[in-house]
Each structure stands twice: as structure tokens, then as C-alpha cells.
Design a protein around this nucleic acid. Structure first.
Lengths: 244, 244
DNA sequence: CTCTAGAAGATTGTCAACAATCTACGAAAG
DNA sequence: CTTTCGTAGATTGTTGACAATCTTCTAGAG
């Protein structure tokens, strides 16, 4: 279980991947302590890079740090994942508006996004919920990149990395997604960007967030659905922030 | 020039403060390299905490990291600071909406915000542009905290830490601010939150962003003001994202 | 029986030395 | 004169050991 020094990726980043994967596959669970020495030994490296990796994970909110008391795997709540979607709704709509105002439909990066969208049509991808989620988020990320707003895309990408982990940790099942409807919404979004229809694009984006969160909420096991729909955050997604 | 191990703050965080201060006072300038060994020697500590501090600064976009090639002080552009304000406009409006929907006006934290607002009326604070900026941002941060949205407030606080540095580095003069008008806008905002007037609050927030950016643009020495007002980001602040 | 004080162990924080990588300078070839 | 290559120096990446801090367990007082 040792790490090869792959080119193009630092040791600390490998630690990040390993720990994130361990959370995704259930080996590490919320509240588990991350002992630097143990992880270092298991990975066959020293504590330095492990420490650095843990700090990176803390910046992504996947672990929480306590001074002189180590790090533990974060315990996200359903409200946390809703907050992630509130952020994506808000910053995503900023990025999309900006991309449209830049007339990016002719840029080569636009085609990159289209290629990523096509991956969602691949039956093999559709067969694996996790693959589907990754592909979906990668497509969205490519769209946001069109804006050229690095700070905003950085935050969006961070939320995108968190989503699979949060979903896994919360025990949300992402299975019964209507793939055809999802792709259709994305097609609308792409078409709206291409034709400079700002309002249509924002509507498509809102639709997407709304359906995705609706899907999550239905698949959430802690079945107090009524309570969830009473959360202010849920109101946020359903109502007001779309028409201030 | 050595560091005392103050309680409640880690060595790495002291490194962050020192470097940030050095940028603010002009000792460190954009493009300057940050040599771990040099900084460690100057501060009388070892490279470990210095390294950690530099990574923290990189997460805040104040320095840029290049693999195996060290860190340099970031060279923000005028567009970068505009992007910061686009983020604050978007996420700030989300946080404020959320705070209002929570009926926070009765919470003790609301009074904390009021106290911070009063600091802006202090003549001594008004005398020092940097103090004024800090006090203003602290007040805004207290308002955002009312939302209880930790992820969103974390991003907002990060932008707040960047603003003084960006202003300094870009050579923006923040002198001719109309303090009375600034405070009046904030009073409107507070009153709107207290009385649950969501639209009034959002309008007050938009006003604030708009005036602040207008102020910045006027005080920007690279005097191509017309060009600045043609930037898509400026359109973003002036127009469309306020009424989708 | 419960609560507090203290010592032993576990774990993080820090350090200095070593290894790997990059940069800059200069010599040789074209 | 320009370009390429190679070496020396500078700097980052990594490591293992030590110091400081926290946690846990036990003994004793109440």
C-alpha cells in the first residue's frame, strides 16, 4: 500500500486522493480521527506530506482541524449539502451570465464542454451513479470555466469535489435519476448560452439545481422529508433567490 | 524580529500575518519570491511552519505556488478585485436573504453587528482609511454570520481578507470615501433586515457594492477609466445580476 | 460511589539534516 | 553571434528525531 511518486502530482495531493477515496468507499467514516503517524506508516511516507494533505482536505471542508488535537473526518449534515447547492446556484449563475456576455460559444473551450456533455449519454456512464455524477459535475465545471472567473470557478470546483463525498456520507441514493431529463436540461442550457439567451440559461440552471436537490431529498433516508422542505435553505433553492 | 508563541494562534498563522503585513506595508511586492529558508531565518523559526503558512496564503490567493519552484507574491489585476466584488455581491446577497428569512433581528449576534457598525462612526477610525476599511468589512462579516451559512461566510471572509491587500497592491486610494453616505447605506441595510424587508435589504447591498466599486474605480491610478467600465465584470456589478 | 489530581502514553508541533529538483551561469558547438 | 549542453549553486521536498501538548488511566480524597 505504498505510493509511487507519479509525475505531475505531489505527494500531499496523493494523500488527499487516498483519504478522499477512503471516505468514499466507507473505510473512513465521519468522526474518525486522522492520525498523521498512522497514515504515514500505511502509505510508506513520512508525516510531512501527510500533514500537508490533511490541511488541504481541511480547506475543502472534508476534515475538521482542532489545534493540537488532530483532525477528524467531517460529519456533514443534510443542511451542509443544501448549502453547497445554494452556493452553486448563486456562483454558477454568475459564471454563466458572465460567460454569455463574453460570447464564448465560438471559443474552442465551448466544444470541450460539449464533449463532456456527450459523456453523459454513454450507457456505460449512465450505468454507474458515481460515474454519472462525476461526468455531470465535470461538464458543469467546463461551462463555468468559460467565464474566465478563476476565483468563482475555484469555489465551484471545490463544491464539486465535496458533493460525491457528502452524498456518500449522508447515505443519499442517487439512483433513480431521470437521465434523459437531466441531459435535456443541459442541452437547453448549452443552447441558451450559444444563442445568448441569458434569461433562458439562468432558468435552465435554476431548473437543474431544483431537480437535483429534489432528487437528493427524495433519496434521503432520514425520512423527515416535510422537515427538510421546511428548512430555510430549501426555501432558498425553491423560491426567492431566483427572482430578487 | 523573532516570534513569541502567543497562545491561541499557531506559528503558521503568525507567518501568514507577517507576510500579509509585509505585503500591506510594501516590503513585499507582487512577483517577489518567498524563500522558505530566508523567511524562517528572519522569523527565527524553522522551515516547517513557514511552509505551512505559505500554503495558507496560497489558499487565499495572496501568493501563487509553482511545483518545486517555490512561491511568489500574487500580482492581482484590477479585474481580480472586481471579481472579488462580484463574489461578494452574489454570496452576500444569498447570506442576507437567508438571515432575513431566519428572523435574526432578535438574536444577540445582531447587536454585535450593530456595535461593529458604530465603530464606523468613530472619528479616529474615520481618520485612517485602512482602519475604516477593516471596520467596514468586519461589520459586513458580522451581518453575513447571522445567516449561519458557514461555507458561504467562509468564502466571504476570505474575500474580505484579500481586499485590503489587493487595494494596496493595485495602488488604489480609498481616501475620498463619503463616510456619511457609507454609514447611511449600512443603516438602511440593518433597518431592512430588522423589519424583514428582503427587497430593500438587497437593494441596500447592491447600492453598497456599486458605490464601493465606483469609488475604487475613480481612485485607480491606471487611468483608463473608460476601459475599466467596459469590462464585463463591471457590467456585472452595474447591471444584470441584480435583476435576472 | 463520585470527583479531582497526577503520571504515563499517545499525538501533534517543530526542528535540522538530507535528497531531489530547479535555476543560472558559462563553455563549447554550430 | 546564437544556441545547446552541462555543471555548480540555490531552493524546495522529504525524512526522522525531539519538544510540547493533549488524552487517558489510575489513585486518592471527599
Amino acid at each position: 500500500m505504498s505510493l509511487e511518486p507519479l509525475p505531475g502530482i505531489s505527494t500531499a495531493e496523493m494523500v488527499v486522493q487516498r483519504i478522499r477515496d477512503a471516505i468514499l468507499e466507507g473505510t473512513l467514516r465521519p468522526g474518525d480521527r486522522l492520525i498523521e503517524a498512522d497514515i504515514a506508516a500505511e502509505l510508506g511516507i513520512s508525516r510531512g506530506p501527510v500533514r500537508e494533505g490533511i490541511r488541504l482536505l481541511a480547506a475543502e471542508a472534508l476534515v475538521v482541524l482542532r489545534r493540537n488535537r488532530g483532525a477528524v473526518v467531517a460529519s456533514p449534515t443534510f443542511e451542509d449539502i443544501l448549502e453547497v447547492y445554494v452556493v452553486r446556484k448563486g456562483l454558477g449563475s454568475l459564471a454563466l451570465q458572465h460567460a454569455i456576455s463574453l460570447d464564448v460559444a465560438t471559443a474552442p473551450e465551448f466544444d470541450d464542454a460539449l464533449v463532456l456533455l456527450d459523456r453523459l449519454r454513454d450507457p456505460e456512464v449512465q450505468g454507474d451513479p458515481l460515474l454519472m455524477m462525476d461526468a455531470d459535475l465535470a461538464f458543469q465545471s467546463a461551462l463555468f470555466d468559460l467565464s474566465g472567473l478563476e476565483r468563482i470557478t475555484a469555489v465551484l470546483d471545490q463544491t464539486a469535489r465535496d458533493i460525491p463525498v457528502f452524498v456518500r456520507v449522508l447515505g443519499i441514493t442517487y439512483d433513480s435519476v431521470d437521465h434523459a431529463a437531466l441531459i435535456e436540461r443541459h442541452d437547453h442550457l448549452v443552447e441558451a448560452i450559444r444563442t445568448h439567451h441569458r434569461d433562458a440559461a439562468l432558468r435552465a440552471w435554476d431548473d437543474h439545481i431544483r431537480s437535483t436537490v429534489g432528487e437528493f431529498s427524495r433519496g434521503y433516508p432520514d425520512a423527515q422529508i416535510e422537515r427538510i422542505f421546511d428548512l430555510p435553505l430549501m426555501h432558498h433553492i425553491l423560491d426567492y433567490s431566483s427572482q430578487p
